[in-house]
Design a protein around this nucleic acid. Structure first.
Lengths: 255, 255
DNA sequence: GTCTATAACCGGATAGAC
DNA sequence: GTCTATCCGGTTATAGAC
């Protein structure tokens, strides 16, 4: 199993496979998403997907390891879509605030059509065992890719003055913040997701100001303290301290 | 986590019921928790629970609406345990920092034995549809109860100087912060949950300092901005503006 | 070797007799 | 309030078709 959001199209087209299989695969996925949209995830049975797609139940399992895997696949799309949507902003905008805002707007717009699944999505994504979980080992590639996006936001920001220690951590911090926004979005029932938009726009402002203030001597102790914590947490994530789970995967037999 | 922890003991003892049913109910719950601890949630079947408890499968469903409901029940316990564990700290400690630290220590200690379930716990708790979800309507009572605990932390803190606008929001903000710690804990695989403890202790320090600094004029604009956001979000949570979820269009059309 | 189809299996949930 | 008999749907095994 590769990462959750999966790389562009790695194993989906293992070799020069012409087509029939690919088409069937796509057909099943489309049908599934269609049904998910129509009646939600729980009320869509694998049998129903197979039936409407005009294939046998077994076939759906040939192409997708599980029902959950169908979700993973569509997950990958939104990531690609987001990257695509963000290009213009990063090319045009030159201030940190505007770049950050643009990226997050694109994010919310990209994921909006899928709000209906978001429950089940996050349900599995929140499971520490699940490869979908954004903090999981399997997610590392995507996480890094996403963090890289924020790094790009920072890099292209003209006139941004940030202490080097903060600068080093900023992309990761922004990614974390952005996950918080998404978490809020998932639970947001307001029309048009108005609350999330407000939260996002206002916190962009706050983040921008905070970053500006970060150099102020008054805040230096606080900044140092915070960054030390951030580094520590990041570091012993990399080096798991205990050797107990060399399994390298879903360990967790220790109490 | 205090959110989901459901109501103290509402329907579990509907009246002064002494009898047989109560015992059976308790027996099933105990057996279930035992099995969950032994082999985890997923690998424990309802049939196995029934069998070891010496009752019929149907009986378990007589007492518990679902497998998930078994979790809800035990959830309630940790909340009670936390409240019990916290009494001493609140009585003894007089500084904000020490009180907050004590409460959070008790929290982590209380929930630790259940870390093994935490995945599944959070999985359901993260589902916006689930009543277990800490942000849900159903969770409001517990949420408020838990927030009240933080209000008590603040109230009993001697020499704490906080601007009134912040003071009003502080308990809610602390609750939110505490949920973040719990979220981290759920995903924490480090031995002894070392990373969570570090995060908790360090952020207690940060929070304490931040609260101290909040009165500083330099930070006033930031504080105002933040609190306005917090109030807005809280307010239109209370008055959901629209009543339907799927009603509106995407909010992100404003440019 | 790539794909499809059928027939189970397993476990959560429900119905209804006693 | 407790049981047995089912249902239902995700998942798997497997036989074969292309």
């Amino acid at each position: 199993m590769s990462g959750p959001e999966v790389i562009p199209m790695p194993e989906e087209v293992p070799a020069g496979r012409t087509g029939k299989g690919e088409q069937t695969r796509a057909l099943i996925l489309e049908t599934a998403l269609e049904l998910f949209r129509e009646r939600g995830y729980e009320d869509t049975t694998m049998r129903a997907i197979a039936e409407r797609a005009g294939v046998a139940l077994g076939s759906t399992y040939y192409y997708f390891r599980s029902k959950e895997a169908l979700i993973q696949s569509f997950y990958g799309r939104t990531h690609q879509e987001h990257l695509a949507a963000v290009g213009g902003v990063l090319a045009d905008e030159r201030t940190f605030r505007a770049r950050l805002l643009g990226v997050m707007r694109a994010k919310l717009e990209t994921i909006e059509p899928y709000h209906r699944f978001s429950g089940i999505l996050f349900k599995t994504a929140a499971d520490p065992e699940s490869p979908l979980n954004p903090f999981s080992q399997e997610s590392r590639p995507v996480r890094e890719e996403a963090t890289e996006l924020f790094a790009e936001v920072v890099r292209g920001s003209e006139g941004l003055r940030v202490p080097p220690d903060l600068m080093a951590e900023l992309p990761g911090l922004l990614w974390t913040w952005h996950m918080g926004i998404v978490l809020f979005w998932i639970h947001d029932r307001s029309p048009g997701r108005a609350r999330t938009w407000r939260l996002m726009e206002r916190t962009v402002e706050l983040v921008a100001r905070l970053v500006q203030l970060a150099g102020n001597p008054l805040l230096a102790p606080l900044r140092k303290l915070t960054l030390r914590l951030v580094r520590e947490l990041r570091d012993d994530e990399a080096a798991p301290a205990g050797e107990a789970d060399e399994s390298g995967e879903v360990g967790g037999t220790r109490t």
